[in-house]
Simulated scan of single mutants.
Amino acid sequence: MPADPRPSGATPERRVLRPTSGTVILIVSGVVVLGLLVDAAVRAGLLEMLRLAPWLLLVLWGVYIALYAPHIAYDRSGVFVQNYLRRTWIPWSRVADIAMRWQVQFALTGGGSVAAYGGPAASRPGRNDRRQRSADRPVPSWLRDLGDLRDTWQHADDAASGTGAPARSWDVPALIVLGVLVAAAAGSVISVQG
């Protein structure tokens, strides 16, 4: 299966929904890892830094997969959902409903559903929000994102959406990076023992 199961004719105007916290945590983690690697190179030398690098990069890879990689991307032809290492492309014609539980759920025609771990998430109203009248309260961003997603689904072009089944695949580039990091970590262990 292809790494990105979207059809090749998908339109480039697409919107990506990803939690801002995942982006912030990935950037902070990257800066911390870079600082630790520079510190290791200065204090222990380049060879020791290279022995340490695979372990720190494995942690950074885990942060990427757990917090940044999950997302929802959609355009007029369908929706692309990435949950950790699994990717699913769903043409709009196969979506029966879009609902919000704790995360966005896509109900499929013919049964089944796909939960999106990345993207907007429902939140409880804050203490101040509960006290305000509903007319004065701003619309939460997750509700706006869900509304945009539902509008795109309801106004989807049937010709662009197609009638294919949802396509599922693995995130092959992330798995290749994991394999390289595991091999490098094994090499660092062997180099210490040798």
Rank of each mutant, 00 (worst) to 15 (best):
S134H: 12
P120G: 06
S113V: 07
I98L: 15
V42N: 00
R87F: 05
Q103S: 14
L57A: 11
W92A: 01
F106G: 07
N128G: 13
G45F: 03
T109I: 10
A156Y: 15
A160V: 04
R133Y: 14
A107P: 00
R51F: 04
P125R: 10
A159L: 13
L67M: 14
V63R: 04
G118K: 08
M100F: 11
A69E: 12
R94F: 09
G162T: 03
A69Y: 08
I72S: 07
W102L: 13
R137K: 12
N128S: 14
P70M: 04
T152R: 13
S161H: 07
R144D: 11
W61I: 00
R133I: 02
Y68A: 10
R130K: 15
Y84I: 01
S93F: 02
A135R: 12
D157H: 07
Y84P: 00
L67V: 00
T152S: 10
V63G: 08
L60T: 00
G78R: 03
A156F: 14
D145I: 06
L50K: 00
Q82F: 01
L58R: 01
R127H: 13
G162E: 04
Y74A: 08
F80R: 05
W92Y: 06
L143S: 13
G110A: 04
T109N: 11
A159D: 14
S123V: 12
S134K: 11
R94W: 08
W102D: 15
S134W: 13
L56A: 03
D136C: 01
D158T: 14
P120T: 08
D97G: 13
A53T: 02
A135E: 15
R133T: 11
A44F: 07
R144P: 00
A107I: 01
A69D: 12
R124Y: 15
A135Y: 12
S161T: 08
D148G: 06
W102P: 00
L46R: 01
A160I: 04
A115F: 13
A66M: 08
D148I: 01
L57F: 09
L146K: 03
L85V: 05
M49E: 10
L56D: 05
Y117F: 15
S134C: 00
W102S: 15
L60R: 05
D145H: 14
D158V: 13
P138L: 04
A160N: 02
L52P: 01
M49S: 14
P138V: 03
V42L: 01
V114K: 02
G147K: 11
S161C: 02
A73V: 09
A116I: 06
V81T: 07
